[in-house]
């Protein structure tokens, strides 16, 4: 017997809002990035589970999940490059202390 689909969906909902909580509460840029990773993973679980349960003969949700992983990897590299650059210019990566775009 399989795990019911609601179990997966409840799990991904909870994980998504854990990510949202972290996104609001964190001050550190890297912490915010980690919360975004949690959110993306929760969404990815949903894509894969819907593909498995609703449409198993084609691979639409599966491929979408794969491309989400690719885009998340690219997004993380660019975000980390920006964070390192911000740290070099301002010696700080807390969102409260980053107030100007141009120096």
């Amino acid at each position: 017997m399989n795990v019911p689909v609601e179990f997966y969906l409840v799990l991904s909902t909870l994980l998504f809002f854990i990510g949202v909580y972290g996104f609001i509460v964190r001050k550190n840029l890297i912490g915010i990035l980690m919360s975004i990773e949690l959110i993306l993973n929760a969404v990815n679980i949903n894509f894969v589970v819907f593909n498995r349960f609703l449409f198993p003969e084609k691979l639409e949700g599966y491929m979408y999940g794969l491309f989400v992983i690719i885009v998340a990897a690219a997004e993380t590299t660019v975000a980390i490059a920006i964070i390192i650059n911000v740290y070099r210019n301002m010696k700080n990566i807390d969102v409260d202390s980053i107030k100007e775009l141009k120096n």
Binding site: V3, V48, V49, Y62, L66, I69, A73, T76
Partner: peptide
């Protein structure tokens, strides 16, 4: 558990292997 082995492998190699290591490097640099 959903018997999607390939996406599990991609998850392990890209996320657990790549992104977390990148994040740790960034934390140590910053």
């Amino acid at each position: 558990l959903l018997s999607y082995e390939f996406i599990a492998a991609v998850q392990l190699s890209v996320y657990a292997g790549g992104i977390v290591v990148l994040l740790v490097f960034a934390i140590l640099l910053v």
